[in-house]
Design a protein around this nucleic acid. Structure first.
Lengths: 204, 204, 204, 204
DNA sequence: TATGAATGAGGTTTCATTCAT
DNA sequence: CATGAATGAAACCTCATTCAT
């Protein structure tokens, strides 16, 4: 009733839960993660979770939202760079930086998509939205590089990332990520060099 | 009474279970699938499953084995083709053929790998073996094409496939697979065009 | 609303379960007892048991703990008596008092030990600890009586009790307990009569 | 149909099962032992067990019978000895010989009695019969020694054995058996020395 | 007789969700 | 808002027993 209570509106617990959920779900997978796991990670009593999230799926959705937020932040940072090719290569660098985490748990977005796509919930659409945002951004970069086949190139790039993340995780070998990133870097370079109007998408 | 009954001694129930498991697990995911689901798909009473498989994980492993068997069959068929580049392109064609299934459920091996890698069982190693077999085969083809960087190319190819499978599934859009396959086809062609110190068709 | 409700904060359900478990396990044996049996005896829903005990074995261990507690209480009461021989004879009297229960179900500690010793759990060690406590106490009494062979006498006494409990139970005949207790009483008396280098009443 | 088939009447499989059951039940306990365990130990296919024993309890009963047979054999051997006190002491010696087995699994008869007494079957009566046979035999010996309280002494002796078996098993310490056997030996000696008409049952 | 296979009842365990305070 | 406790549906798994051959 007092103001002091009104001021710290949600006391940040909701956000804390979403962040914890994102981390734990990435590390353990949706099915293997219990509400208690997330509650514990967020240092919130289990019963209290339901004040903020009506159901477990709601919490998963919030975790997806947290991931979307992360992605937005990353993209914003990349957009600071002047040239589109530079931005894309900075994206690659970020992937390489995360390679240890990827080797252990895979790409956060990809593993979530893979698991949720088997469900009839709306959750599968939520994660698709996040994936599409990344795709759209990449497409913009390729378009800014003057490529008419920007969408196709964007799909190819993100697919390569998702796939190498899977392999990196499957074989628990972060070096796979490093090598593929280098390959993709050279590929991006090759796209800018040639006459931009051609269909020069040969990957090597 | 008929011979047909005598011939398949054990009535093939074990195999039927493994096959059913492979299908259902692909369609629903490991965690969402109950033993009852698989038993029903195989038209076997639940309790009877345990006569053939000691635990659920054993059954999952059998499903992985069934997948490995599929892969071996596919590879054997591809190996009938004379040139390595042709073989790789035939592989791509197979992926395109499966695009509808992939759009609904993703790549059978990839989704399984993604889900199982979060577990401490030996199952994660089993599926990794299947993945490695495909990788090794692709490497052989690139090597037969005279490429010194055969491993890297193989990783790139399989990663692209896994990634585009994920996107195809995420967006429920089989055309993504088709387009990417075409791109990869052109890519493979580009690899053979350049001067590559011969030894083009050595199969092994 | 009343204080009585506030006082026993956790409503004592955990303890109630442990006590019920001790009784039911004594009456039915560990293997023949289902969690549902115990839950019902404690008037607790089955699912709720797992809020207090992670596994059935945990509950069994709690039951052993309840037994240990009983034993401590009994020993504390016996220790009120001035002379060690009196204490031992009071112990015998307690056994006789329990003879009907023993005829039906055997000695709670002994039957549990017998059943649990066939298992690889730590449970067999837990019950051994309870048994040892009784043994140690008896040894102290004999030592206080000036007997150098106190340990051996303690072992003989407890063995006689365990054995006669078994026979009493096997033949469903409480009189066996009564008769043997009398015999043991005379035996204890005979130990004090002889010259035994004093130090008769040193309690510890 | 042929004679050869008639000759090896039951091919000894029934007996083999009973013997195997006795061993396995002693080692693992009734509840922890499955029919498959026993069948395997007897090298008999599981399904075949039911040709010889209508139910698991029937097989347990047969195991009890095998134990009774053992006991009869042992008693017959002891009866070869000239003096009753010698016979009893030979019994003690047998117990000491078995001490390692007892430390691991307890007394075969006692553990079985303890476990079966919790059941409403007739099995509890079967094992009681075995126990009574031993008791009766011991009573005879004491009576032959001229003791009027022969029954009471027999009960005391067997109780001591059952109890020390339990302790030996609980603490996994075969030496307990050895020490107690020596004590009982001295006790038996003390019974013969005095005037046989007295109530000289003081145990030390 | 002999036997691999089949069956289903029953037990343990997990966990999302609800509720009383 | 907060929270420990409660609940029941559903999953996995075991095994005595039966059956077809």
């Amino acid at each position: 009733m007092t103001d002091s209570k009104k001021v710290r509106r949600t006391s940040g617990k909701r956000e804390r839960l979403a962040t914890a959920a994102a981390q734990v779900l990435h590390a353990q997978g949706v099915a293997q993660t219990t509400l208690a796991d997330i509650a514990q990670a967020a240092e919130v009593p289990v019963g209290n979770v339901y004040y903020y999230f009506k159901t477990k799926d709601d919490l998963v959705e919030a975790a997806i939202g947290a991931q979307a937020e992360n992605l937005r932040g990353m993209i914003a940072a990349l957009d600071e760079l002047p040239a589109p090719a530079e931005r894309l290569k900075a994206l690659l660098a970020g992937w390489v930086e995360q390679r240890e985490l990827t080797a252990r748990y895979g790409c956060p977005t990809g593993t979530l998509a893979s698991e949720l796509d088997k469900r009839a919930d709306g959750l599968d659409r939520s994660i698709a939205t996040v994936m599409r945002a990344l795709l759209d951004w990449a497409e913009q970069q390729f378009r800014a590089m003057g490529r008419a086949d920007a969408r196709e190139l964007a799909v190819a790039l993100i697919a390569s990332y998702q796939g190498i993340s899977l392999l990196t995780n499957t074989f628990r070998d972060p070096d796979l990520m490093t090598a593929e990133a280098h390959r993709l870097e050279r590929w991006i370079d090759s796209l800018t060099e040639g006459p931009t109007t051609g269909d020069d998408d040969a990957r090597e």
